[in-house]
Design a protein around this nucleic acid. Structure first.
Lengths: 188, 188
DNA sequence: TTGCGCTGAGAACGTTCGTTCTCTAGTGTA
DNA sequence: TACACTAGAGAACGAACGTTCTCAGCGCAA
């Protein structure tokens, strides 16, 4: 049985695709209407403004990211493997055709200075990721400093893959992560 | 024609300040006029368009970055110390009041999808940095993979310091860099 | 002084875009 | 058939902005 997607969901998904592909300010509400197939009147019945839609899109994108990370971790045994699975997840993502960097980093660069809500959404997403890494590092009995370092590698890989066009960034990040983990466990 | 050269510089510097602080599309040409003190007519005599000004601004910003890195390296002895000086440079930068992340990452996030020139300027800057790190790593006799890893740490520190608001990212990156360098030199 | 060219301040123009409004075609009902 | 109602397509509106144009004022040569 096929449940037709709600206006709300179709709008969010269409806006997410467009914002990610072209940037936020480059996408007009009319393009969102065309991509979602939802007329402007119903669109504005769901979202008070483009800004409100954007915040919802960012939360949606955060949920997608979280579930992707969780799925990657599910096929790994133990905290060390789950940590390394993050970089495998990044590697697969970087090699997708429409990869254009981290949507939160991009949104922050575009609107972080002008919209405190956008800045907050990006910050929350990044802090949640750092917390996730921190929990696995703690489970390994290593220092929280290692967690910060592993998160740096993941963030750096995302910008490098996007801007420099080097998808191998994930592989390099993974190798560096292994080195750092091993070093941290030795001194623990 | 010293007056026109002065116009040129004042415009670029004013635009750089504004673009970095508020984002590019959030800054109108009238704001550039007000900040630079150069009337619109002379402004458009120097730059054919806002896009042309932006590209010049990005090159200017790249030169500033390069000279900052060079100055940090100048007070260090040997490739290892010069590499670590990068993170000290980042640390000082992150703690400045008006720090808002890497201008190239921000510009790429805002306009990279829509302007191939912006994307190219950001890519060139990032590749130049990777080349700089690669030269020092080669001087140490270590693998190019280490260079990629050290660059990832620097990129990750910039986004983390900006978005998460954690200036300690530079310190963590530096410590991770030391670990990675030592490990690479051991196996070399 | 008078006329001429240049300059700057800002008005004007054309476009884009977020948001709202209008009008028409269609539906269901008695 | 007549009527009320709804919803969608797109026009309309107002604001912002990149870019160009106007015009008053000034310096200056003769």
């Amino acid at each position: 049985m096929t449940t037709t997607a709600s206006d709300h969901d179709r709008i969010v998904q269409a806006a997410d695709r467009l914002f990610y592909r072209r940037g936020i300010q480059a996408v007009g509400m009319d393009a969102v209407r065309a991509e979602s197939g939802v007329p402007l009147k119903r669109l504005y019945a769901q979202f008070a403004s483009k800004d409100a839609l954007l915040i919802e899109v960012l939360h949606h994108r955060g949920a997608i990211w979280d579930s992707g990370i969780a799925a990657a971790a599910a096929s790994a045994e133990g905290p060390r493997a789950k940590l390394l699975a993050v970089y495998d997840f990044l590697d697969a993502w970087f090699r997708t055709d429409d990869f254009r960097g981290c949507g939160f980093i991009n949104a922050f660069g575009e609107l972080g200075a002008v919209s405190s809500e956008v800045a907050a959404a990006a910050r929350e997403q990044k802090l949640a990721f750092q917390h996730y890494v921190g929990a696995l590092v703690a489970e390994m009995g290593a220092s929280p400093v290692l967690a910060a370092q592993l998160a740096l590698l993941a963030e750096g890989a995302q910008t490098t893959a996007a801007i420099s066009g080097l998808p191998d960034a994930a592989i390099h990040a993974r190798a560096a992560a292994e080195t750092l983990i091993d070093a941290a466990l030795l001194t623990a």
